[in-house]
């Protein structure tokens, strides 16, 4: 638990944006990332729970997931396509997915997040208060703009989703995962574990230009090999 110096629970987005303007202020979603980070100290957290950003709404062409909807909400919502629900369920264990929020997931930009990869192939964009909406890929690459708050993620819920992953154990955070989607716009493919964040790649050349950082779970070269194998499987699963 970081040494939190102040806690705020604004009642409106305007108040939240105003509070965020202060020094050392950070947004608190569910808390699974920030509250477990023992390296932080003297942070002041702005808790979004009172803003009513947890709704999940869908139309034929768009799914909108509020920023404070939890992964459990996503996994349990019949508004969400089955493939995405299953990936949301696997993203975190039972005691954390009820707290972790979709906004927090996007802000963390974790390189191993299969759910982020799934959102990428669904063409997700991120609604922001205090800033213009941005494609998810841009948010992952550049980070959440300073003084902005993620309010929702929007995506095209249609299409077929398939993913393949390799981990140490069946429920392990994958060393590399590939998520493929066949939608109206064609085939899209995203990978985890091969860059600083999940990334979309060319389905026709999924490993081109990859230079992933290695660690004890998988060297750089091994991750490239996995990317090729898993991309082929995910794409093959669409057929």
């Amino acid at each position: 638990m970081p040494l939190v110096a102040a806690y705020f629970r604004p009642d409106s987005l305007d108040e939240a944006l105003s509070l965020l303007a202060g020094p050392h202020r950070i947004v608190l979603g569910g808390g699974t990332t920030i509250n477990s980070d023992r390296q932080r100290s003297d942070v002041e957290v702005v808790d979004l729970q009172a803003l009513g950003l947890d709704s999940i709404e869908s139309s034929e062409t768009e799914l909108r997931i509020g920023a404070t909807a939890t992964l459990a909400d996503v996994a349990g919502s019949d508004q969400v396509p089955d493939g995405l629900r299953a990936i949301a369920r696997r993203e975190s264990p039972s005691t954390l997915r009820t707290l972790a929020t979709i906004g927090g997931l996007i802000a963390s930009a974790h390189p191993d997040s299969v759910l982020l990869a799934a959102l990428l192939v669904h063409g997700a964009s991120v609604d922001l208060a205090g800033s213009e909406a941005m494609p998810l890929a841009s948010v992952l690459a550049q980070g959440v703009p300073s003084q902005a708050i993620i309010t929702a993620v929007r995506l095209d819920p249609t299409g077929v989703l398939c993913h393949a992953a390799t981990g140490r154990t069946p429920a392990d955070v994958p060393i590399v995962a590939a998520v493929a989607r066949a939608g109206a716009g064609g085939i899209s493919l995203a990978l985890t574990g091969v860059a600083a964040t999940p990334i979309t790649v060319d389905p026709d050349d999924p490993v081109g230009g990859l230079a992933p950082p290695g660690d004890f779970r998988g060297s750089s070269g091994y991750r490239v090999e996995l990317a090729g194998v898993l991309a082929a499987r995910a794409l093959g699963g669409l057929r």
Binding site: M1, V4, Y7, R9, L28, G30, G31, T32, N35, S36, R38, V45, D47, Q49, A72, P93, S94, T95, L96, T98, L99
Partner: peptide
């Protein structure tokens, strides 16, 4: 402290959740 063990799991509004990663202030 990161909630991974679940030993501190409680029901938070009826859902299983690790109390390790919930600020007490969040529970208000």
């Amino acid at each position: 402290s990161d909630g991974e063990t679940g030993a501190a799991a409680i029901l938070f509004d009826g859902e299983l959740a690790s109390a390790d990663v919930i600020l007490a202030a969040q529970a208000d």
